[in-house]
Design a binder for these strands. Sequence first.
DNA 1: ATTGCAGCAA
DNA 2: ACGTTGCTGCAATC
Length: 891
Amino acid sequence: MSTDTQRLLLIDGHSLAYRAFYALPAENFSTSTGQTTNAVYGFVSMLINVLADEEPTHIAVAFDLGRQTFRLAEYPEYKAGRAKTPDEFHGQVELIKDVLKALAIPVVVKEGFEADDVLATLACQGAAAGMEAGIVTGDKDAYQLASDSITILYPKRGVSDLTRMTPAAVEEKYGVTPANYRGIAALVGEKADNLPGVPGVGEKTAAKWLTKYGDLPNVIEAADEIGGKVGGSLREHLGEVERNYRLNQLITDLELDVSVADTRRGEVDREALDDLFDQLEFQVLGRRLEALLGSTTEERPSADIPEPRLLSAAEFTSWLQAVDAEAPVGIATDAQFALGLGTVDSIGLAQHDDVVATDLSRLDESGVDALSRLLAEHAHLTFHGAKAQLKALVQAGYPMPWLETDTEIAAYLVVPDQRAYELTDLCTRYCGFSPGQTEPEEGTLDLALGGADAALRALGRNAWSTVQLAAALRAILADAKMVGVLDEIDMPMVTILAQMELSGIAVDLTALQGLIDEFGAQAADSAEAAYAAIGHEVNLGSPKQLQAVLFDELQMPKTKRTKTGYTTDADALADLLVKTGHPFLEHLLAHRDSIKLKQTVVGLHRMVADDGRIHTSYLQTVAATGRLSSVDPNLQNIPVRTDAGRRIRDVFVPEQGAGFSELLTADYSQIEMRIMAHLSGDESLIAAFRAGEDLHSYVGARVFGVGVDEVTAEMRSKVKAMSYGLVYGLSAYGLSRQLQIGVDEARELMDGYFERFGAVKAYLDSSVENARSVGYTETMYGRRRYLPQLTSDRRQVREMAERAALNAPIQGSAADIMKIAMIRVDAALREAQLKSRVLLQVHDEIVVELAAEEYAQVAALIRSTMGGAAALSVPLDVNIGHGPTWQQAGH
DNA sequence: ATTGCAGCAA
DNA sequence: ACGTTGCTGCAATC
């Protein structure tokens, strides 16, 4: 960009704010006073980026004004059918205008016109005055304005990534000139504006026609000579197309209160801006803006990343030998891991501002030694998403590193309910710079053009970035007193999980194949019987087709509504079976059972690796409470409640012929209720656990006012359901439905419980109230979960948050205790030089592969370690079993 | 490719 | 509207 050209930046405020609102999760952007700020954050973040990128000399933001526009007047259905914008959005537009005012950026509106018309007018005026104009808008109609002097900056995904739509880019994407883009839009239609186009005509067909006939009026004129089905379709919809064409034309000659000269950048009101950002609690964003406004050179933040050096094998070795043992080292690799096998080809390393990268395959022996020593001995290694990389490195022959910080996990601890923790996003958010593209652009040309080197440099940048990010996140965790959770619980877990996943668990393939055949045959039989019962075939797996059979064909009474019709879930079907006695239902239910089992065993079979074992992956940053989750396959939901289901657990066995003899399972009994007893301090409940009697009978005796041996099986099961339900925030209505009893009886049960265990109720209530006032819940070890929805005025949203607030400290403390136990078990097994190893974790249970002759020692070690993992006011009971399969090791 | 339903676990 | 936290597979929809 030449410095003497004047650059005009024009932004569609409403459309960008709206995109930001939906791109950023509202629950992660809310101030302590409850103001939602996601749209403001996204908008301002986009604004900062675009100011840095475009360096405009002139700038303006347009907003829509007035409900009545000329488009609506011509077509009353314009933009109809759009969902009502949520209340959380409107207030944020005002905040955005406040920010713009402080930044001295004029806001332009014109009654009866949309923001894009205003922008089009200003852009044309600017272009006429010899300026370069950029229009930031989420409305593609603006493409029609693209020219040598006007570029459209269209947000690709979210609001952070803007595509530059020049005339060439428009032509490349749509095959037509910007002027003809209107024709494409008119033919294809725009769903968001409720402007239907020609059915069957997409961008390709539209472009073909426009190229052939020149422009849309010519296409319309020639409509009669266009053959085929689409030709007919076009003739039928000419009216709509002409209307779309009129409506999507942007107005470029509005009379505005603001002229291009008025948009010259003015003096920023720093004080107002500081106040505003304080109020919005935008710390990082404030610093980013500060950096941008403060420096006259307006250096890009990403320019701060040191340029990575690509090293030869010899250079790499000497770099490693010169590493400072006291300073953090960032590591990033291109590791991939699937089905028990990993690959890692290249590595980036960073210490201080020295960033290097190399191909691992090129390393000679001394290079491998030096890297091994770094991994084994350095005390300050930082990764982002370490576990898969550790596994791949270990399989490549390197030692298992001791890692100080995994920035993905640190970011999870800071905000545990985010969907993704991408390094780039986190750097933008917490450090105010962006390491940029983490992987080279797709496409075969890249390799030829040095894509491999670019990929190496990206690894170097990632390695450096993760060190900066670790420092930023640790500072935040220190403020929240959560460094202990990071260092003592979640970091040590990473290597333990990596080892468990590398081990995997052996399966008996013959037995597994047997189950596939058996469950498959059962499913086929039930399906046949079901078809016979109604006289025709139907896809039993399709709720929609089942509804047709049950409610239309067989005229059965309607079940509970779902979004798309009536439920056909197992409860409802069982209910219908009682009411109608129709044999179809019986066979359908049997089919559901066996097809589900078959699906499960087929899924497991698919995941057996070449070593005959299943290597699940544990996810450490998914469950908002601190639990682990398991994928590929999920080994935390293997059936156990039915006999048929339990048989699946029989295919999990110890490794054959390697000195392993049995599997051992160890689980905490009623850990969540014990935690509830501890946290509430309820004397009765604590006494119940200390008595060591059957908990549900003990509680049942209290609730029903009878002796412990007078508690019937029915009473016990009711109490059991209620006790478990309490941990989840169960209501009387929910309890009544689950137990198939009246709401009154359920209410009496709950009242009875709370009367005898008063401190439990007090604890549950105060726990929610406390979370509402501070904004988060806490486990016994300080792991937080933020729940800003606790102050929502939408009842359903608020109550959902209340139940989450009730559950999170209990579920989360249990998860913490299990993690601590696993860390200590791992250490104790090592210490005692035992060969047995932990393979699986299922929330309150671990599965251990027992080396021959080690049962007694391992059982004792695990019982005492798990039982002593936390000091509660009640004992932590551990059940242990062992046997030749997972099923038989259970108890 | 995404959404909804259904069903498994703790 | 009415019980938390997860994952997977299928059908239907875009």
